[in-house]
Protein backbone atom coordinates (compact mmCIF):
# COMPACT_ATOMS: atom_id res chain seq x y z
CA UNK A 1 0.00 0.00 0.00
CA UNK A 2 2.82 2.36 0.92
CA UNK A 3 4.30 2.19 -2.56
CA UNK A 4 0.99 3.02 -4.14
CA UNK A 5 0.51 5.95 -1.84
CA UNK A 6 3.91 7.23 -2.91
CA UNK A 7 2.89 7.09 -6.56
CA UNK A 8 -0.45 8.72 -5.75
CA UNK A 9 1.25 11.46 -3.75
CA UNK A 10 3.65 12.11 -6.58
CA UNK A 11 0.74 12.52 -9.00
CA UNK A 12 -1.09 14.89 -6.69
CA UNK A 13 2.09 16.84 -6.06
CA UNK A 14 2.55 17.35 -9.78
CA UNK A 15 -0.99 18.63 -10.01
CA UNK A 16 -0.33 20.96 -7.12
CA UNK A 17 2.90 22.30 -8.50
CA UNK A 18 1.28 23.12 -11.82
CA UNK A 19 -1.52 24.88 -9.98
CA UNK A 20 -3.80 24.42 -12.97
CA UNK A 21 -6.08 22.30 -10.80
CA UNK A 22 -7.26 25.71 -9.68
CA UNK A 23 -8.78 25.95 -13.14
CA UNK A 24 -10.88 22.87 -12.48
CA UNK A 25 -12.28 24.43 -9.33
CA UNK A 26 -12.82 27.65 -11.25
CA UNK A 27 -14.80 25.84 -13.94
CA UNK A 28 -17.08 24.31 -11.38
CA UNK A 29 -17.60 27.62 -9.63
CA UNK A 30 -18.35 29.16 -12.99
CA UNK A 31 -20.84 26.43 -13.86
CA UNK A 32 -22.58 26.77 -10.51
CA UNK A 33 -22.69 30.56 -10.62
CA UNK A 34 -23.73 30.61 -14.23
CA UNK A 35 -26.54 28.12 -13.86
CA UNK A 36 -27.78 29.92 -10.78
CA UNK A 37 -27.74 33.24 -12.58
CA UNK A 38 -29.42 31.64 -15.51
CA UNK A 39 -32.10 30.01 -13.43
CA UNK A 40 -32.78 33.17 -11.47
CA UNK A 41 -32.88 35.13 -14.71
CA UNK A 42 -35.25 32.73 -16.39
CA UNK A 43 -37.47 32.56 -13.34
CA UNK A 44 -37.66 36.34 -13.20
CA UNK A 45 -38.74 36.34 -16.82
CA UNK A 46 -41.52 33.88 -16.15
CA UNK A 47 -42.64 34.59 -12.68
CA UNK A 48 -42.64 38.19 -11.53
CA UNK A 49 -43.52 37.23 -7.96
CA UNK A 50 -40.24 35.47 -7.43
CA UNK A 51 -38.17 38.58 -8.00
CA UNK A 52 -40.39 41.58 -7.36
CA UNK A 53 -43.81 41.31 -5.81
CA UNK A 54 -44.98 44.65 -7.03
CA UNK A 55 -45.30 44.08 -10.76
CA UNK A 56 -48.91 44.42 -11.85
CA UNK A 57 -49.88 43.47 -15.38
CA UNK A 58 -52.41 45.81 -16.94
CA UNK A 59 -54.67 44.38 -19.61
CA UNK A 60 -56.55 46.56 -22.02
CA UNK A 61 -59.81 44.74 -22.69
CA UNK A 62 -61.91 45.47 -25.72
CA UNK A 63 -64.49 43.75 -27.93
CA UNK A 64 -68.20 42.95 -27.51
CA UNK A 65 -67.81 40.22 -24.95
CA UNK A 66 -65.31 42.07 -22.76
CA UNK A 67 -67.75 42.11 -19.84
CA UNK A 68 -67.33 38.34 -19.51
CA UNK A 69 -63.60 38.37 -18.92
CA UNK A 70 -63.25 41.45 -16.70
CA UNK A 71 -64.49 39.85 -13.45
CA UNK A 72 -62.16 36.89 -14.02
CA UNK A 73 -59.13 39.15 -14.32
CA UNK A 74 -60.09 41.45 -11.48
CA UNK A 75 -60.20 38.53 -9.06
CA UNK A 76 -56.41 38.29 -9.02
CA UNK A 77 -54.14 40.73 -7.27
CA UNK A 78 -51.46 40.96 -9.93
CA UNK A 79 -53.86 41.67 -12.78
CA UNK A 80 -55.71 44.86 -13.57
CA UNK A 81 -58.04 45.72 -16.44
CA UNK A 82 -58.77 48.85 -18.39
CA UNK A 83 -61.86 48.65 -20.57
CA UNK A 84 -61.95 50.23 -23.98
CA UNK A 85 -64.99 50.43 -26.18
CA UNK A 86 -62.78 51.35 -29.09
CA UNK A 87 -60.03 49.01 -30.21
CA UNK A 88 -57.92 51.77 -31.70
CA UNK A 89 -57.81 53.59 -28.39
CA UNK A 90 -56.60 50.42 -26.72
CA UNK A 91 -53.90 49.99 -29.37
CA UNK A 92 -52.74 53.56 -28.92
CA UNK A 93 -52.39 53.06 -25.18
CA UNK A 94 -50.58 49.79 -25.81
CA UNK A 95 -48.28 51.47 -28.27
CA UNK A 96 -47.18 54.11 -25.83
CA UNK A 97 -46.73 51.51 -23.12
CA UNK A 98 -49.60 52.48 -20.83
CA UNK A 99 -50.92 48.92 -20.85
CA UNK A 100 -48.98 45.71 -21.15
CA UNK A 101 -51.31 43.71 -23.35
CA UNK A 102 -54.54 44.01 -25.28
CA UNK A 103 -57.25 41.36 -25.18
CA UNK A 104 -60.02 41.64 -27.73
CA UNK A 105 -62.86 39.39 -26.72
CA UNK A 106 -65.92 38.56 -28.79
CA UNK A 107 -68.20 35.62 -29.39
CA UNK A 108 -68.23 33.27 -32.36
CA UNK A 109 -71.64 32.17 -33.69
CA UNK A 110 -71.40 28.86 -31.79
CA UNK A 111 -71.01 30.66 -28.48
CA UNK A 112 -67.28 30.33 -27.94
CA UNK A 113 -65.31 33.23 -26.67
CA UNK A 114 -62.72 34.33 -29.18
CA UNK A 115 -59.77 36.17 -27.72
CA UNK A 116 -57.23 37.99 -29.79
CA UNK A 117 -54.30 38.82 -27.58
CA UNK A 118 -51.56 41.29 -28.40
CA UNK A 119 -48.31 41.08 -26.52
CA UNK A 120 -45.28 43.37 -26.72
CA UNK A 121 -42.61 42.15 -29.08
CA UNK A 122 -38.91 41.94 -28.48
CA UNK A 123 -38.88 43.37 -25.04
CA UNK A 124 -37.67 42.02 -21.73
CA UNK A 125 -41.22 41.82 -20.50
CA UNK A 126 -42.47 39.76 -23.46
CA UNK A 127 -42.11 36.41 -21.78
CA UNK A 128 -43.56 37.69 -18.56
CA UNK A 129 -46.57 39.25 -20.23
CA UNK A 130 -47.22 36.20 -22.37
CA UNK A 131 -47.08 34.01 -19.28
CA UNK A 132 -49.61 36.28 -17.61
CA UNK A 133 -51.89 36.28 -20.67
CA UNK A 134 -51.79 32.53 -20.55
CA UNK A 135 -52.74 32.59 -16.87
CA UNK A 136 -55.66 34.96 -17.48
CA UNK A 137 -57.01 32.94 -20.38
CA UNK A 138 -56.70 29.65 -18.53
CA UNK A 139 -58.67 31.10 -15.64
CA UNK A 140 -61.21 32.40 -18.11
CA UNK A 141 -61.41 28.99 -19.75
CA UNK A 142 -62.07 27.34 -16.42
CA UNK A 143 -64.81 29.84 -15.64
CA UNK A 144 -66.41 29.23 -19.02
CA UNK A 145 -66.23 25.47 -18.61
CA UNK A 146 -67.88 25.86 -15.24
CA UNK A 147 -70.67 27.88 -16.88
CA UNK A 148 -71.12 25.23 -19.56
CA UNK A 149 -70.68 22.23 -17.25
CA UNK A 150 -74.12 20.85 -18.09
CA UNK A 151 -73.11 20.27 -21.69
CA UNK A 152 -70.08 18.21 -20.61
CA UNK A 153 -70.11 14.46 -20.08
CA UNK A 154 -66.91 14.49 -18.02
CA UNK A 155 -66.17 17.09 -15.42
CA UNK A 156 -62.68 18.57 -15.10
CA UNK A 157 -60.84 17.70 -11.91
CA UNK A 158 -60.77 20.52 -9.44
CA UNK A 159 -57.37 22.23 -9.31
CA UNK A 160 -55.33 21.80 -6.16
CA UNK A 161 -54.56 25.04 -4.33
CA UNK A 162 -51.89 27.35 -5.70
CA UNK A 163 -48.61 27.54 -3.85
CA UNK A 164 -45.95 30.18 -3.95
CA UNK A 165 -43.12 27.89 -4.88
CA UNK A 166 -40.00 28.90 -6.72
CA UNK A 167 -39.57 26.99 -9.99
CA UNK A 168 -35.86 27.14 -9.17
CA UNK A 169 -36.35 24.50 -6.48
CA UNK A 170 -36.71 21.59 -8.85
CA UNK A 171 -33.91 22.88 -11.07
CA UNK A 172 -31.42 22.86 -8.19
CA UNK A 173 -31.95 19.18 -7.52
CA UNK A 174 -32.52 17.83 -11.00
CA UNK A 175 -29.85 19.79 -12.88
CA UNK A 176 -27.41 21.60 -10.64
CA UNK A 177 -26.65 18.87 -8.10
CA UNK A 178 -26.14 16.10 -10.70
CA UNK A 179 -24.02 18.45 -12.81
CA UNK A 180 -21.78 19.36 -9.92
CA UNK A 181 -21.39 15.77 -8.79
CA UNK A 182 -20.59 14.31 -12.21
CA UNK A 183 -18.42 17.05 -13.69
CA UNK A 184 -15.45 16.28 -11.38
CA UNK A 185 -15.79 12.60 -12.30
CA UNK A 186 -15.25 13.29 -16.01
CA UNK A 187 -12.32 15.58 -15.36
CA UNK A 188 -10.72 12.93 -13.11
CA UNK A 189 -11.10 10.26 -15.78
CA UNK A 190 -9.58 12.56 -18.35
CA UNK A 191 -6.55 13.30 -16.16
CA UNK A 192 -6.14 9.58 -15.49
CA UNK A 193 -5.69 9.14 -19.24
CA UNK A 194 -3.07 11.89 -19.22
CA UNK A 195 -1.21 10.57 -16.19
CA UNK A 196 -0.58 7.23 -17.88
CA UNK A 197 -0.23 8.39 -21.49
CA UNK A 198 2.37 10.90 -20.36
CA UNK A 199 4.63 8.19 -18.94
CA UNK A 200 4.57 6.37 -22.25
CA UNK A 201 4.97 9.52 -24.30
CA UNK A 202 7.88 11.03 -22.40
CA UNK A 203 9.53 7.65 -21.94
CA UNK A 204 9.59 8.06 -18.18
CA UNK A 205 7.99 4.68 -17.64
CA UNK A 206 11.43 3.13 -17.91
CA UNK A 207 12.52 5.14 -14.88
CA UNK A 208 9.52 3.95 -12.88
CA UNK A 209 10.23 0.40 -13.92
CA UNK A 210 13.70 0.31 -12.39
CA UNK A 211 12.15 1.18 -9.02
CA UNK A 212 10.83 -1.68 -6.89
CA UNK A 213 7.30 -0.85 -8.10
CA UNK A 214 5.28 -3.42 -10.00
CA UNK A 215 3.03 -2.46 -12.90
CA UNK A 216 0.00 -2.91 -10.69
CA UNK A 217 1.48 -0.54 -8.11
CA UNK A 218 2.02 2.18 -10.68
CA UNK A 219 -1.45 1.92 -12.17
CA UNK A 220 -3.03 1.63 -8.73
CA UNK A 221 -1.23 4.69 -7.46
CA UNK A 222 -2.19 6.81 -10.43
CA UNK A 223 -5.80 5.72 -10.27
CA UNK A 224 -5.93 6.27 -6.54
CA UNK A 225 -4.81 9.88 -6.93
CA UNK A 226 -7.36 10.66 -9.63
CA UNK A 227 -10.15 8.57 -8.15
CA UNK A 228 -9.97 10.40 -4.83
CA UNK A 229 -10.24 13.85 -6.38
CA UNK A 230 -13.79 13.52 -7.68
CA UNK A 231 -15.56 12.45 -4.48
CA UNK A 232 -13.66 15.13 -2.55
CA UNK A 233 -14.84 17.84 -4.93
CA UNK A 234 -18.40 16.50 -4.97
CA UNK A 235 -18.38 16.40 -1.18
CA UNK A 236 -17.21 19.99 -1.03
CA UNK A 237 -20.05 21.02 -3.33
CA UNK A 238 -22.66 19.22 -1.28
CA UNK A 239 -21.34 20.90 1.86
CA UNK A 240 -21.37 24.28 0.16
CA UNK A 241 -24.92 23.78 -1.12
CA UNK A 242 -26.30 22.79 2.26
CA UNK A 243 -24.43 25.70 3.80
CA UNK A 244 -26.28 27.93 1.33
CA UNK A 245 -29.66 26.59 2.37
CA UNK A 246 -30.16 23.83 -0.17
CA UNK A 247 -30.77 20.82 2.04
CA UNK A 248 -29.12 17.67 0.68
CA UNK A 249 -30.96 14.65 2.00
CA UNK A 250 -28.62 11.66 1.57
CA UNK A 251 -25.07 13.01 1.30
CA UNK A 252 -23.35 9.75 2.21
CA UNK A 253 -25.19 7.75 -0.39
CA UNK A 254 -24.56 10.41 -3.05
CA UNK A 255 -20.87 10.29 -2.22
CA UNK A 256 -20.92 6.50 -2.47
CA UNK A 257 -22.48 6.78 -5.90
CA UNK A 258 -19.92 9.39 -6.98
CA UNK A 259 -17.12 7.18 -5.67
CA UNK A 260 -18.51 4.29 -7.64
CA UNK A 261 -18.64 6.34 -10.82
CA UNK A 262 -15.26 7.81 -10.13
CA UNK A 263 -13.72 4.33 -9.86
CA UNK A 264 -15.50 3.25 -13.03
CA UNK A 265 -14.63 6.29 -15.13
CA UNK A 266 -11.01 6.41 -13.94
CA UNK A 267 -10.74 2.70 -14.79
CA UNK A 268 -12.07 3.49 -18.24
CA UNK A 269 -9.51 6.24 -18.64
CA UNK A 270 -6.66 4.04 -17.46
CA UNK A 271 -7.78 1.22 -19.76
CA UNK A 272 -7.89 3.56 -22.75
CA UNK A 273 -4.45 4.94 -21.94
CA UNK A 274 -2.93 1.49 -21.37
CA UNK A 275 -4.44 0.14 -24.56
CA UNK A 276 -3.57 3.01 -26.88
CA UNK A 277 -0.69 4.80 -25.13
CA UNK A 278 -0.99 7.82 -27.33
CA UNK A 279 -2.90 10.65 -25.72
CA UNK A 280 -4.86 11.83 -28.71
CA UNK A 281 -6.44 8.45 -29.41
CA UNK A 282 -6.85 7.53 -25.79
CA UNK A 283 -8.54 10.81 -24.90
CA UNK A 284 -10.84 10.67 -27.88
CA UNK A 285 -11.93 7.11 -27.27
CA UNK A 286 -12.25 7.79 -23.57
CA UNK A 287 -14.53 10.78 -24.05
CA UNK A 288 -16.63 8.99 -26.63
CA UNK A 289 -16.75 5.97 -24.34
CA UNK A 290 -17.94 8.07 -21.43
CA UNK A 291 -20.58 9.56 -23.71
CA UNK A 292 -21.74 6.08 -24.67
CA UNK A 293 -21.76 4.78 -21.09
CA UNK A 294 -23.64 7.77 -19.76
CA UNK A 295 -26.21 7.84 -22.50
CA UNK A 296 -26.77 4.12 -22.15
CA UNK A 297 -27.47 4.56 -18.43
CA UNK A 298 -30.46 6.59 -19.57
CA UNK A 299 -31.98 3.37 -20.81
CA UNK A 300 -31.89 1.94 -17.30
CA UNK A 301 -35.05 2.28 -15.24
CA UNK A 302 -33.28 4.98 -13.25
CA UNK A 303 -30.45 7.05 -14.71
CA UNK A 304 -27.56 8.04 -12.42
CA UNK A 305 -28.43 11.74 -12.70
CA UNK A 306 -31.99 10.93 -11.71
CA UNK A 307 -30.73 8.78 -8.84
CA UNK A 308 -28.62 11.68 -7.53
CA UNK A 309 -31.61 14.02 -7.85
CA UNK A 310 -33.85 11.63 -5.94
CA UNK A 311 -31.27 11.07 -3.22
CA UNK A 312 -30.58 14.78 -2.84
CA UNK A 313 -34.23 15.84 -2.73
CA UNK A 314 -35.09 13.02 -0.35
CA UNK A 315 -37.32 10.75 -2.43
CA UNK A 316 -35.13 7.69 -2.96
CA UNK A 317 -36.91 4.44 -3.70
CA UNK A 318 -35.78 0.88 -3.21
CA UNK A 319 -34.54 0.97 -6.77
CA UNK A 320 -32.35 4.00 -6.05
CA UNK A 321 -30.55 2.24 -3.21
CA UNK A 322 -30.15 -0.89 -5.29
CA UNK A 323 -28.75 1.02 -8.24
CA UNK A 324 -26.18 2.80 -6.05
CA UNK A 325 -25.02 -0.65 -4.98
CA UNK A 326 -25.06 -1.91 -8.56
CA UNK A 327 -22.95 1.00 -9.83
CA UNK A 328 -20.41 0.36 -7.06
CA UNK A 329 -20.22 -3.36 -7.82
CA UNK A 330 -19.87 -2.88 -11.58
CA UNK A 331 -17.16 -0.24 -11.16
CA UNK A 332 -15.21 -2.31 -8.67
CA UNK A 333 -15.46 -5.35 -10.95
CA UNK A 334 -14.04 -3.28 -13.82
CA UNK A 335 -11.26 -2.04 -11.57
CA UNK A 336 -10.36 -5.55 -10.41
CA UNK A 337 -10.46 -6.73 -14.01
CA UNK A 338 -8.01 -4.04 -15.09
CA UNK A 339 -5.63 -4.90 -12.22
CA UNK A 340 -5.68 -8.57 -13.18
CA UNK A 341 -4.92 -7.61 -16.75
CA UNK A 342 -2.01 -5.40 -15.74
CA UNK A 343 -0.68 -8.04 -13.35
CA UNK A 344 -0.69 -10.62 -16.13
CA UNK A 345 0.56 -8.53 -19.03
CA UNK A 346 2.54 -5.84 -17.30
CA UNK A 347 2.76 -2.35 -18.77
CA UNK A 348 4.32 -3.41 -22.04
CA UNK A 349 7.51 -2.06 -23.43
Amino acid sequence: MGKRLTVAKRELASLRSEKTIVLAILIQLFVAAFSSFLAVGLVSLYDPGSVSNQFVVEFGVTGEAREDIVPVIEEQDGWRTLEYSDEDAAMRDFDRGAIHAVLKVDRTPDGRARVRAIAPDGNVRTTLVVTQIKGVLETFERAERQRLRHSLERQPVELPPDSSSSPYFGFTYTVLVPLLTFLPVFVSGSIAVDAIAEEYDRGTLELLRVTPLTGVDIVDGKMLAMGVLAPVQAGAWLALLSFNGTAIANPVEILLLVTGFSVGVVTMGATAALAFRERKQAQFLFSMGVLVVFSSTYLLPESPANAVAKLAIGSPTQLTHLSVGAYLVVSLAAFVGLRRFVAKRGLGS
Partner: peptide, 27 residues
Protein backbone atom coordinates in the same frame (compact mmCIF):
# COMPACT_ATOMS: atom_id res chain seq x y z
CA UNK B 1 -56.60 15.82 -21.99
CA UNK B 2 -59.95 14.89 -20.47
CA UNK B 3 -61.69 17.68 -22.31
CA UNK B 4 -60.21 16.69 -25.65
CA UNK B 5 -62.24 13.45 -25.39
CA UNK B 6 -65.51 15.33 -25.01
CA UNK B 7 -67.99 15.17 -27.86
CA UNK B 8 -69.13 18.76 -27.36
CA UNK B 9 -65.90 20.55 -28.17
CA UNK B 10 -67.51 23.98 -27.94
CA UNK B 11 -68.17 23.45 -24.26
CA UNK B 12 -64.90 21.62 -23.69
CA UNK B 13 -62.75 24.37 -25.15
CA UNK B 14 -64.93 27.44 -24.79
CA UNK B 15 -62.11 29.91 -25.35
CA UNK B 16 -60.08 30.22 -28.49
CA UNK B 17 -57.03 32.37 -28.69
CA UNK B 18 -54.76 33.94 -31.22
CA UNK B 19 -51.70 35.75 -30.04
CA UNK B 20 -49.85 38.46 -31.87
CA UNK B 21 -46.62 40.22 -31.02
CA UNK B 22 -46.35 43.89 -31.66
CA UNK B 23 -43.71 46.47 -30.99
CA UNK B 24 -44.47 49.16 -28.46
CA UNK B 25 -42.98 52.12 -30.22
CA UNK B 26 -43.59 54.44 -27.30
CA UNK B 27 -41.23 52.45 -25.13
Amino acid sequence: LLMSRESNQTAAFPVEVSLRYEEQTGL
